[in-house]
Design a protein around this nucleic acid. Sequence first.
DNA 1: AATATAATGTGTTTAATTTACACATTAAAT
DNA 2: ATTTAATGTGTAAATTAAACACATTATATT
Lengths: 246, 246
Amino acid sequence: MSTDQLKQQQQGVKTLQAIQSEVENINRIALSVDCVIFGFDENKLKVLLIKSDLKKYLGKWSLLGDLVFPNEDLDAAAYRVLKQRTGLSDVFLEQVHTFGTVSRHPAGRVVTVAYYSLINVQHHKLNTLDNELHWHDVKSINNMAFDHQQIFDTCLKQLQKRVQEHPLGFNLLPRKFSLRELQNLYEAILDFKMDRRNFRKKFFSMDFLIDLKEMEQDVPHRPGKLYRFNFEKYEKKKKKFIGIDF
Amino acid sequence: MSTDQLKQQQQGVKTLQAIQSEVENINRIALSVDCVIFGFDENKLKVLLIKSDLKKYLGKWSLLGDLVFPNEDLDAAAYRVLKQRTGLSDVFLEQVHTFGTVSRHPAGRVVTVAYYSLINVQHHKLNTLDNELHWHDVKSINNMAFDHQQIFDTCLKQLQKRVQEHPLGFNLLPRKFSLRELQNLYEAILDFKMDRRNFRKKFFSMDFLIDLKEMEQDVPHRPGKLYRFNFEKYEKKKKKFIGIDF
DNA sequence: AATATAATGTGTTTAATTTACACATTAAAT
DNA sequence: ATTTAATGTGTAAATTAAACACATTATATT
């Protein structure tokens, strides 16, 4: 062993060969993704959960996830889970946090990367055969399987924070929506009531709403105007801010 | 195969046995942590890097990281790297993002979880034998090994964002500091100049500074007052906000 | 057909926060 | 004794956020 190698070993520096050996044989760990899939329906924020089929967690609900394949990009695994469970592509998906305590999973050491996703519930139909999948009010869920309650709480907080920084909420709405629906959405996500006039002022001043010159149909009161979100304009604006974590 | 099992297979639902098998034998992946270790010295924000010893990246700098052991909590692995490289315990450490493209590492498939850490450079002495370790000005680094430039950029942005939400900067300063040093720190992190009077006003109004009734020594101008950060008060305040992502 | 109902649509005033800005003071260096 | 280079301090202006009320419209009711 050369002086250099000795020094490297003392310092914990590793050669490529040593690393390859460790990567291939020694230190591999099962890695999964878990998706907190949010939807908005009946003026409530919902999350898509599946009934756990593990004895230990019988009857409890868990997030939708799966192991990451050895040849699959991490984000791709999350999109795969989403696609498999909702049939949807091109949805909003953001990584939140990686949970990696040794004891978090009953089937052995599994590190999981948590994502949250925002989908338009109108665009998707749950497989009606798949009665293990259910939309839950976020306000009523507790006591989930594994450490999924913690993961869910973390993702909900992330959503609440992000939605106050960027107009993500539109991903949860149908293409056409009224300002009341938009406000209901924000109140459901953030769990507090807002001033109607200030809310409208704020969104109009952001200038991302396109007036569709249409009115709501079949509402039991004076119908409101319908708008759509100007995704194109928002994407342009985002590009200008690249580098400032926009 | 029962109807139930058939249905589960169709739906991608797995039994505990199937999961255990996958966890143990099939889908394991090498997992590493990488630490962006920030320091503050000579009024500049610094990052601790090591010279890459891989041929492919010869002469390039890389972050400090290591593979996660199969029996080691994820956060523990990051603390281990920190301790090994700086000798420090009880330092600020936050997980930022997990990088998981298949091709990111030359030694095979390695998913890495990125952390950033804030340390007081006065509290640590680099092993002088370890001439592969160096503090770099964050402004001058580019072209790092692997995808470490991207990881670094992501962590720096996270720091810049966090430091505007919470008083993390104190972790980078000596126990006693002047307001000018504090402002220099924030200007170094955020990379813009601030108004001196407004800066002082802001920090005094946060009420986390303890006046030590001492003055700077050995400065070539009128010495400023010395303060220390009231970590205890901050921790108390944080507790009140648990649940609001404080 | 007239009336009641329940929501939409719209501006202004006040309060709070952020920004801009100048001069006397102090200790060290000359 | 003078110069220098920083510290320490307050107020006014501008911007942003919060509070708040009434006329209008379509539906539902009588």
